[in-house]
Design a protein around this nucleic acid. Structure first.
Length: 303
DNA sequence: AAGACGAAAGTGGTTGA
DNA sequence: TCAACAACTTTCGTCTT
């Protein structure tokens, strides 16, 4: 077995192995050793129902590799199927084959664009700790953007960042533009602009992000207990009922709720701490906080 | 000394003529 | 296309603990 290998793409050492004996990198999906001959039955469904479905098993197609993971890769080790060495001339031939194989796989400029973009997407995705479905979604959005020619005149990095931002929001785990910008070389400004263009052009249905989506993350950054978190949630629900949230930035409302909840549950955090966690200023928290107190008839001195 | 508070001026984005 | 506008930020001085 190959335990101490690392991924050629991202240097990760984590692999998963599927039933076909393919080892693929968990980080970027790169398939490492797919020259294994599958001697098992062909699992096509010839049963009563679904006989015509044409379903087969295998590694699921993924958006995260530029050819959706549908191609094979030639093992880089100069060993035959049984693990024995091969002759020098055969090894030489395989080196040529590998090089040609790589060239045909990444043939045109669109493919090349995709492969650098998806590498960037993987980098951002893992640095930001985004779950795989969100990354897949982001990759899908990026593909669509390429098809629509939206990358022309913009940087690949910018469009990648915008795709991730969009994907997070659509998956209800929104990150702020600043957060995405912190990991990407493109600034918040450009990501925002690009995002708007992409969302409009692709007709993405991105709901305005809800303050509720931010609360769990803010609480976890601030190491607040569950009781505080649910307190913040209930404050937020009350606030929304009386339409205190209209027109305000969702992060501001969320941050103020968390701050207030932290006082009420005796897990006080300073305004500064909360503002840092939420990526907004203390002033905004104060304003929202004041509004919350007066509108909901809460007196923080009671706690 | 640190946190909370608020006033005033500045910034970037949206809206409506 | 441009000006008005609301939300938010920055900056800074004051008050409280």
């Amino acid at each position: 077995m190959i335990e101490d290998d690392y991924c050629k793409e991202c240097n990760s050492t984590l692999f998963e192995e599927n039933a076909q004996g393919e080892k693929s990198c968990i980080e970027c999906g790169l398939v490492l050793s797919s020259l294994v001959i599958d001697e098992g039955p062909e699992w096509r469904n010839y049963g009563e129902e679904g006989g015509n479905s044409g379903e087969r098993t295998g590694m699921p197609s993924t958006e995260l590799i530029h050819d959706k993971g549908l191609s094979t890769d030639i093992d880089w080790r100069n060993k035959d199927f049984a693990g024995a060495g091969i002759s020098a001339s055969t090894a030489k031939m395989f080196r040529r084959l590998r090089r040609q194989h790589q060239r045909t796989r990444i043939s045109n400029s669109k493919e090349r664009n995709l492969s650098v973009a998806l590498a960037e997407l993987q980098r951002l995705g893992s640095q930001m700790d985004l779950p795989k479905p969100i990354r897949e979604q982001a990759a899908y959005i990026y593909r669509k953007a390429v098809e629509k020619g939206l990358v022309r005149g913009r940087s690949i990095e910018g469009v990648v960042a915008a795709s991730i931002y969009a994907s997070c929001r659509m998956g209800s785990i929104p990150r702020t533009l600043d957060e995405v910008g912190a990991f990407s070389r493109t600034g918040r400004k450009e990501i925002g602009r690009t995002f708007r263009a992409v969302a409009q052009e692709l007709k993405l249905r991105v709901k305005p992000s809800s303050p509720q989506d931010y609360i769990p993350r803010f609480c976890s950054i601030l190491a607040l207990p569950q009781t505080t978190e649910s307190q913040a949630m209930s404050i937020l629900i009350d606030a929304e009922r009386i339409e205190l949230t209209a027109g305000r930035g969702p992060t501001g409302i969320a941050a103020a709720s968390v701050y207030l909840a932290s006082l009420m549950t005796k897990n006080a955090r300073t305004q500064k701490e909360v503002s840092d966690a939420a990526g907004i200023t203390e002033v905004t928290i104060r304003n929202r906080y004041k509004e919350l107190c007066s509108a909901l008839a809460i007196n923080p001195q009671d706690y």
